[in-house]
Nucleic acid binder design. Structure first.
Lengths: 228, 228
DNA sequence: TCTTGGTGAGTGAGCACTTACTTACCATGA
DNA sequence: TCATGGTAAGTAAGTGCTCACTCACCAAGA
């Protein structure tokens, strides 16, 4: 009797997940990662509480710890999950084979500069590096270092071709990606308003960089791509 | 004399500040700001506790709150205190008047890239922006925006002179500072090892950028400044 | 029936901030 | 010269609250 009443009372809001369906461990973990990632990206590791994460995922706080033994484990899972080998690199590779400099750099800049796209990734990256999370280096290495290395390799071959001036390829790659990443940083993190269109910006950066890099600039009668 | 001895004896552990001297409110606040700034820069606002700050400054936690009503107030005081109009700008101004492009850009790059120099400032800046501190915009505006605006103004006049190609001056300024700041970011925040010397790096960036920006590059027989 | 997804109600630790009190300094008048 | 009292610098020991994390228990389904 009293037992029944007790159980009835206790079950106030079971499986807050939509309606009475129980999710598999895999799905739950995935949804927890999604919920936590945006919170961690917004407020950092220390600024995010496990309660918030549970609430955002629509489950109890205890369940979070059933799936991830510690808050840190959950964070690590996010960083590892976010590491995706970029499909972009293949597309760039194709352009690189044709020695289409303009296209190679434009593609990279367009990809990196495109607003909004996975802005959580950028924030997570910065937060994890600033907060000196142990996985930060892996995160950076797998997700970003590829770009520098690929681009540097391309620049090196173009120098050997005699198409580019003899400049340290890694420095050059960093310089270009620096311009572009910095632009994103200003826009997305420091909320600096940008008055130029996405395309204009990319075109200007590529033009600025390439005309500097190419050995014998034909700037006078070059094809119509011009900033503004 | 005897009074001194007496006081010495009586004082069991008073004023943990070195030896029994009481600091003025001004000095105490300054020392608290110094202690707190490096902690906030290292671990962010949420990652730093008021206990740690007090310990680092060698005072009791209660005293921190005597001087700053809240932890946030202390943080705000740091951001405001760190805003210093840079002496660099004057030096740059001088070079700018002589239209010494190379010198202008080299000075800015050298200043911004120099390792270790106020690396806490960079970290504070990033943390305050990421953590969306209310004073972050002011902090960025006063401390960094000046650079972009000054450089953009210089580039604009040089375009009007006919010395630079017609490119959006603000974008160009951002591109250059982006290269340099990004380099510092890689080095200081992401701990990427740099194999080039400080001077080589600056020279390469300036060369890369200027040769791209100058209208009619005399790259063949230009003065001996060359990367590497 | 037993594994597994799920919860409510904790737990001690640590947090920002307070309170009640002590001690040093220094200007003033005798 | 020196007692003296007002004030500001300083503290130990809290306060309530929130944090990451736990535990005992429950229900769905193969």
């Amino acid at each position: 009797m009293s037992e029944h009443l007790l159980t009835m009372k206790k079950r106030t809001r079971q499986t807050t997940n939509g309606n009475g369906q129980r999710a598999s461990a895999r799905d739950r973990q995935a949804s927890l990662i999604v919920a936590a990632a945006s919170l961690f990206a917004a407020k950092g590791f220390n600024g995010t509480t496990t309660r918030e994460i549970a609430k955002a995922a629509g489950v109890s706080e205890a369940l979070v710890f059933k799936h991830f033994p510690t808050k840190r484990t959950l964070y690590a899972a996010i960083l590892e999950e976010k590491v995706t080998v970029n499909e972009l690199l293949e597309a760039v590779e194709a352009a690189a084979k044709k020695h289409d400099d303009h296209r190679v750099f434009t593609m990279i800049a367009s990809y990196r500069i495109r607003p909004g796209v996975d802005s959580t990734l950028l924030r997570l990256l910065l937060f994890s590096a600033l907060e000196r999370h142990e996985l930060s280096e892996m995160f950076f290495g797998k997700h970003h270092k590829v770009f520098y290395d690929h681009l540097a390799a391309y620049i090196r071959t173009r120098i050997e071709d005699g198409a580019f001036r003899p400049i340290d390829p890694l420095l050059a790659a960093r310089a270009f990606i620096g311009m572009v990443v910095h632009h994103r940083l200003l826009h997305e993190i420091f909320r600096v308003p940008m008055h130029q269109s996405h395309e204009d910006t990319v075109a200007t950066y590529v033009d600025l960089f390439l005309t500097g890099l190419i050995k014998k600039p034909t700037s006078r009668k070059s094809p119509g791509r011009r900033a503004r």
